[in-house]
């Protein structure tokens, strides 16, 4: 059942993105930013945690999860070392994702060429 819930959550997020893309002048880059902000707002009010508890891994795949992790790290930083921790913890949980993106992009750019 958790697979189905995951699929439903990620599918709904993608559906919303597709509707925005088809009906507005926003470009894919804008929509990604929009969803990161949306994810971080949901996390600010602890709503994303609710989704994560109920929909499982699907919530951590889509781009909204990036915003959620940014705010999660920031709040943890505030708890540990006060206001400065807000900035310190910003990339606490997202470092893995960002580093992986850089490393994989680097390897891909060496091994492959854009074709089309």
């Amino acid at each position: 059942m958790s697979y189905i819930y995951s699929f439903i959550f990620a599918g709904v997020v993608c559906l919303i993105a597709e509707i925005i893309l088809n009906n507005t002048n926003l470009k894919p880059g804008h929509i990604i930013c929009l969803f990161v902000i949306f994810g971080s707002m949901l996390d600010t009010f602890k709503i994303y945690d609710f989704f994560q508890d109920n929909f499982g891994a699907g919530t951590s795949i889509v781009i909204t999860s990036f915003g959620h992790l940014i705010m999660h790290g920031a709040f943890l930083g505030v708890k540990q070392s006060g206001f400065i921790g807000f900035l310190n913890g910003f990339f606490n949980y997202t470092t893995v994702g960002i580093s992986a993106t850089i490393v994989f992009a680097f390897i891909t750019s060496i091994l492959f060429k854009a074709k089309n």
Binding site: L21, N22, K27, P28, G29, S109, A114, N116
Partner: peptide
């Protein structure tokens, strides 16, 4: 428009 590698969805 965009870098070729970006592979964005076209309208």
């Amino acid at each position: 428009r965009n870098p070729v590698e970006y592979g964005y969805q076209k309208k």
